[in-house]
Design a binder for these strands. Sequence first.
DNA 1: ACTTCCTTGAGACTCATTCTCAATAATAGA
DNA 2: TCTATTATTGAGAATGAGTCTCAAGGAAGT
Lengths: 142, 142
Amino acid sequence: MLNKDKLKTALKKESLRFTAQRQLVFDEVCRNVEHRDADDIFLSLRKRNKPVSRATVYRTIEVLVKNKLLKKLDVGDGRARYERVDAAEHHDHIICVECGKIEEFIDREIEEFQEKIVRDRGDKMVRHILQLFVVCKECGAN
Amino acid sequence: MLNKDKLKTALKKESLRFTAQRQLVFDEVCRNVEHRDADDIFLSLRKRNKPVSRATVYRTIEVLVKNKLLKKLDVGDGRARYERVDAAEHHDHIICVECGKIEEFIDREIEEFQEKIVRDRGDKMVRHILQLFVVCKECGAN
DNA sequence: ACTTCCTTGAGACTCATTCTCAATAATAGA
DNA sequence: TCTATTATTGAGAATGAGTCTCAAGGAAGT
């Protein structure tokens, strides 16, 4: 499905109108720069002379997250990060506490253990967070 | 080691003075009510006629977290929770997105997988977060 | 095109947390 | 113990990410 159609589908599902601003925000997050915060997106649009207000950026992000076109990431510094969701598999994050670099990893086995824990308790998994805070190889070398 | 000594040791290590306020905050968090936010601690002290200012509560919490007498927990609602660290083993959290209940679990195998991932990359683990967001059994039944 | 009612933008507001700074208290030294 | 030094405290101001307000503008159905 084309990007534009993904957005339109999501908006229809939410009974929201398709607008130029929502398209601009979605285009911006689709530029595939990873782990950006809301202000990055706002400023990037403004810089490219496609200004959309902060309020609209936040409002649009909310819709995108709700419809799984965008993933929200909390790295514990009080600013949410967002990353585009595409066909790629679910992944978790390794965050360097010194340089702030965020990398991704996947571990099927851990995923399965998590599922099992929840299933065994009789709960229903909604989502999960697995974050490994490290001093990365480069930072550790200094 | 006695609680008071744990605090004194931490303060000495940080070159900070032992004060009645810091003792009060530490006593309060040691009352073992789990997963409290900073304002809970502040209000609880005030209610028991042991008022300590918000600023001091926050400042003391920071020292306690840094010295691993308290663990900070981010459940994604914008208010940090704190739980006392005692002899008990490290654990992770299951959070119900409907009722807000926070429970704990331990899984040695997941822990080991995490260690291995970091080790294999050449990074050094500082801490990790594993949170399973669920609809719990009780909430799912309704 | 008309009408309805949703969306937008600018800035006010919220709320957790941090900062400021003058008054107070802890510690070291005499 | 008394004093000098320097850290700590508290009240409230400041911060900053995110949310809300509401009048003006725009999308969509008829």
